[in-house]
């Protein structure tokens, strides 16, 4: 039983991190219908930046966060302005492949600037833990959950209370109607890409102190947002959060009860089950096809 609860807490921590990253992913998808394959690499970039700044150069946390946010935002903006803006109306898979090309470029850039060796985990989170009735709960997990909750609250505020958030929701709901009302979709698209990149980068920043190594594998871990987003329903914000948490929990349970090699497969297994029962995801809407 204690193992169950410990895995659950660890899963919630990892899952909340995934939830934030998945949220960014769904933001881009809802606004631009693009499956961003480069999301995992932006996640990895955040981790590498953090590792290189905090672990190797002892730059204070606040500055690191700022730098990660700025660089991620810049990358998101460049992706939109340079590439995505010119590909409006292309076949879906073509755009997806363009993001794969971007992923290759980003990965290569990270390799060039940071070198290909692995780095150890960054020491940002507290190492202490407390015992609650025989269950060991790491404080690091609690900090992660706390950070993610704060970010989700911030995102909710952004989307519900600000004009920009309002515009983004409008474009996501009905692009044509939003244009008619006078909302400039390009601004919204750029904001979506920037937000997604920043969320992925921050996710990487947090993950660099959670996972055991910072290496090029992180791009694959960043790919876990795909099943997370799908479980929740690809075009649903609460779905992204729920999906992220489910994936994190599933991953930890699989790792704990079945062994480390099942961690890659677990999110997809859960996704299969969910999609078999509800092909549109938990919160997704059934799409009617127009003939």
């Amino acid at each position: 039983m204690t193992q169950f609860i410990q895995l659950l807490v660890a899963g919630l921590a990892l899952g909340s991190l995934y939830a934030v990253v998945a949220f960014g992913f769904v933001t881009v998808f809802k606004a631009t219908s693009v499956l961003n394959f480069a999301h995992g690499t932006m996640f990895m970039l955040g981790a590498y930046l953090t590792a290189s700044m905090i672990a190797e150069r002892d730059i204070p946390l606040v500055v690191t966060v700022l730098v990660v946010v700025l660089i991620s935002a810049a990358i998101g903006a460049v992706i939109h302005l340079g590439i995505m803006r010119g590909m409006v109306g292309q076949a879906l898979f073509t755009v997806v492949l363009a993001t794969i090309g971007i992923e290759i470029v980003l990965k290569a850039l990270i390799q060039i600037f940071f070198g290909a060796e692995e780095r150890g985990r960054v020491d940002m989170l507290p190492r202490s833990s407390s015992q609650v009735g025989g269950v060991v709960i790491a404080h690091a997990d609690l900090v992660l959950i706390g950070c993610s909750v704060l970010m989700v609250i911030g995102l909710v505020v952004l989307f519900q209370r600000t004009t920009l958030g309002f515009k983004m929701r409008a474009v996501a709901d009905n692009l044509e109607a939003a244009k008619v009302v006078g909302i400039n979709p390009q601004v919204v698209f750029m904001a979506s890409w920037i937000l997604a990149a920043v969320l992925a980068g921050i996710g990487g920043l947090l993950f660099s102190s959670y996972g055991s190594v910072v290496s090029l594998d992180l791009a694959g871990i960043g790919l876990r947002v795909f099943p997370a987003a799908l479980i929740g329903g690809l075009a649903s914000f609460p779905g992204a959060i729920v999906g992220g948490v489910i994936v994190g929990v599933a991953e930890q349970f699989a790792g704990g009860y079945l062994g480390g090699e099942w961690r890659d497969v677990a999110p997809y297994a859960v996704m299969f089950v969910v999609l078999l029962v509800r092909p549109q995801g938990i919160f997704g809407k059934k799409e009617a096809q127009r003939v």
Partner: peptide
């Protein structure tokens, strides 16, 4: 020193360019 990464970089850039301009 980074030849393989640079090749990957050019390759990815080539793909993005081809897709962007001649889908």
């Amino acid at each position: 020193n980074n030849s393989s990464a640079i090749n990957a970089l050019l390759f990815g850039a080539l793909i993005v360019l081809v897709l962007r301009f001649q889908p």
